[in-house]
C-alpha cells in the first residue's frame, strides 16, 4: 500500500545525524566510558584481582573483561539511544520526523543503528584496552561478535523505547542508573553466579542480564553460568520484545503524536 520502497535516504540521514552527534560529543560518548571501564580494570583486575584466586580456571582480571564490556554496552546503548530520540521530543524538532515520509521501521533503523554502532565501537575499544591490563584469549570470536552486536542492537532498541517513554531528563536517567546498572552488577559482571548459594542462583535466573553476560563470557573462556544456546535464545527474545514494542509505539503514536 504505502511501502513501495524503503526510504534509504532517510535512514542514512538519521544515521549520519546521530553519528555526527557522537563525534561532536566524543569526550562524553567515547572517551569517558573507556576511561571509567579502564578504572574498573585497574581496581578490580590489577589491584584487587591479583589477590583473588582464579574463577573456574580463568584469572580474575580476565574473567571480568566480558562482564565489564557488557556493563558498558548495556548502559551506553540504552543511554545513547534514549537520548537520541528524547532530545528531538524535548526540543520539538520531532515534528520533522513525524511529518516526513518515513516509516517507524526506518526511524528506528536510523536511531538504533547509530546507537548500536557507537556501542559496538566502544565495546571493541574497551576490549582492545583490556589487552593492556590482562592477557586475553577469545575462544569463539564469531560468537563473541554475535553477542556483542545482538546485545548492542537489543539495548539500543530498549533505549529507544525509554527515550519515547521518558517525560523528562530524570526519567531518562532512571532506567540505566537504577535498573540496568544494578542488574548488570548482580548479573555476574564480577563473579560467577555459581559462587552464590543455590537459592540466590535461582533468583539470579530472573535477571535477564545474567544470560547476556554468561553467553558473552562463554565466547571468551568457554565457561558459562547457563548454556550459551539459552543465552542466545534469551537475547533474541529481548530483541523481539523490543521490536514489537517499537512497532506498537509507532502504530499508536504513543507519546509521539497528539
Amino acid at each position: 500500500m504505502n511501502t513501495h520502497a524503503i526510504n534509504t535516504h532517510a535512514i542514512l540521514a538519521i544515521y549520519k545525524f546521530e553519528m555526527s552527534r557522537t563525534l561532536r560529543t566524543i569526550w562524553q560518548s567515547i572517551v569517558s566510558p573507556v576511561i571509567s571501564t579502564s578504572l574498573y580494570f585497574v581496581v578490580f583486575g590489577a589491584a584487587i584481582g591479583s589477590r583473588i584466586t582464579e574463577i573456574e580456571g580463568v584469572a580474575y582480571g580476565a574473567f571480568i573483561v566480558p562482564g565489564l564490556i557488557m556493563l558498558m554496552l548495556l548502559t551506553q546503548s540504552t543511554m545513547n539511544a534514549s537520548f537520541g530520540i528524547y532530545f528531538p521530543r524535548f526540543t520539538g524538532t520531532i515534528y520533522e520526523l513525524l511529518s516526513a515520509p518515513v516509516s517507524s521501521f526506518e526511524i528506528a533503523c536510523g536511531y538504533v543503528g547509530a546507537a548500536a554502532t557507537k556501542s559496538i565501537i566502544l565495546g571493541l575499544i574497551i576490549l582492545a584496552t583490556s589487552w593492556l591490563f590482562v592477557p586475553l584469549h577469545i575462544a569463539h570470536p564469531f560468537w563473541m561478535l554475535t553477542f556483542l552486536v545482538l546485545t548492542a542492537i537489543t539495548f539500543s532498541l530498549f533505549g529507544f523505547i525509554i527515550g519515547i517513554w521518558a517525560d523528562g531528563f530524570e526519567q531518562l536517567q532512571i532506567i540505566p542508573l537504577l535498573i540496568i546498572t544494578p542488574l548488570t552488577f548482580l548479573g555476574g559482571t564480577f563473579y560467577s553466579t555459581h559462587v552464590l548459594p543455590p537459592f540466590w542462583q535461582t533468583v539470579t535466573l530472573f535477571n535477564p542480564v545474567v544470560y547476556l553476560i554468561s553467553g558473552f563470557r562463554w565466547s571468551f573462556f568457554e565457561i558459562a553460568d547457563v548454556s550459551p544456546l539459552v543465552s542466545l535464545g534469551m537475547t533474541l527474545v529481548f530483541l523481539c520484545v523490543c521490536l514489537v514494542t517499537i512497532w506498537w509505539i509507532f502504530k499508536t503514536g504513543y507519546r509521539l503524536k497528539k
Partner: peptide, 8 residues
C-alpha cells in the same frame, strides 16, 4: 541537507 534526506 538532513531534511532533504529525511524526505527521501
Amino acid at each position: 541537507s538532513f531534511s532533504r534526506g529525511l524526505f527521501g
